[in-house]
Design a binder for these strands. Structure first.
Lengths: 218, 218
DNA sequence: CCAAAAGTGTTGGCTGTACACCCATGT
DNA sequence: ACATGGGTGTACAGCCAACACTTTTGG
């Protein structure tokens, strides 16, 4: 049957995890927390928690993201649901999100000590959270090519060079400037705002914004 | 936290659904069953059931597929996990699979009356199973282009015309014969067996097999 | 005038698409 | 002989990758 039978017996423990990425100083980073409970107490893991009764998976993921970073209107998508991350009998629905380093601010006062880590220099993680991160990273790299996911990685206005730097950080290889601009402009995911970045000791740069601040796939 | 706390209180009900496709007589079909329990008793739905204690999601999906069709070595992949298919507090992990009409044989004696339905002529479904089917269909169409998913839709040996017919049934539009053959051969997902189909009142056709009988993505 | 980043075009290869005819077989 | 499906090639267009110099500004 496609749904629960009304019957007795405890169900499964359902957890929700969120892989939260940002780009900082040309590095792709993931948000990790220190576990405050057993098992794996004090080791690093992805933020997450038990799915509260009455809450949908998405609501729980949004809430967790908001608790950790303070942001909510960002790209957030289901990644995969795992049932064998630990030896217990639990099911973990993983989500992934992209946040802008300026608007995402970690709650410093948290009992778990949230920290950003470069994806290519992760510490040892609880359960098999490295698997989850790797899967999220693969999805991210994949979606970069044919969607506007990056919209929530950058501030509302940005230069094409900044966008390119974000792409390079994610893909971890350099891109040709002219081809990058051609491709992005041809995709039509951004448009010029008419304003110019003045923050250089250099030539001012045209600023752009994403046409859509929600997921669009091509 | 990324996993269960050891604590009291019942968890969630976790269900596993499977969207099983086949191609029959040029039509793409989905397997449906009649619900034998409330709610939605006697209406059609996707095969599924509660995730048994101690079982992983994949094991449960494999098992369900095997119960319904008798096959197990086929393409089977996680689709999406829903938490709002019904008004209850359950979570449903959906999988999708492709089976060959020759080897998949429905268990006739089931209390639920499994039946194949054309995807474009579904009856009213319980919960929001139409959503699930539509999502699975989108994934299937998408994956056709850059993977060998079709490997479990056809018998071990088949002609390129049969393969093309399967593609056309899934995409629901006709394909150019020469371009199709060029593309499939260039992808390298199939190879000639050297044998010839003799089942025509027509010219015998070269038979092919898939190089890999497990998912390969390009 | 120097350093630093912005901005800009062309070419060649590859890939995908459109399109029509002949062949082998069975009846 | 005819009906049925099997099998094949070419030409054009769009896309992607490689590649280097000039401009603007601040110091």
């Amino acid at each position: 049957m496609s749904a629960p039978r009304t019957e007795s017996g405890a169900g499964r423990l359902v957890a929700v995890l969120v892989v939260i990425f940002r780009v900082e100083a040309g590095r792709l980073q993931v948000l990790l927390i220190r576990r405050s409970a057993e098992p794996f107490k004090d080791s690093w893991s992805l933020p997450g928690g038990r799915l509260p009764p009455g809450s949908s998976l998405l609501e729980a993921a949004v809430h967790r993201l908001e608790v950790e970073t303070g942001v909510s209107e960002v790209f957030l998508e289901q990644l995969y649901t795992f049932s064998d991350l630990d030896k217990g009998d639990s099911v973990a629905a993983a989500y992934w999100a992209l946040v802008d380093r300026e608007s995402a601010r970690l709650a410093r006062r948290n009992e778990w000590q949230p920290q950003w880590y470069d994806v290519d220099r992760l510490p040892a993680l609880a359960f098999q959270n490295e698997t989850v991160v790797q899967l999220a990273l693969a999805r991210l790299r994949n979606k970069l090519a044919y969607s506007n996911v990056a919209y929530s990685l950058l501030p509302p206005e940005f230069t094409l060079s900044q966008l390119q730097q974000a792409y390079e950080a994610i893909l971890s290889h350099v891109l040709d400037k002219r081809n990058f601009r051609k491709r992005i402009l041809a995709l039509g995911i951004v448009e010029p705002t008419g304003r110019y970045s003045s923050e250089g000791r250099h030539r001012p740069a045209q600023m752009y914004r994403f046409r859509e601040r929600r997921p669009v796939v091509f």
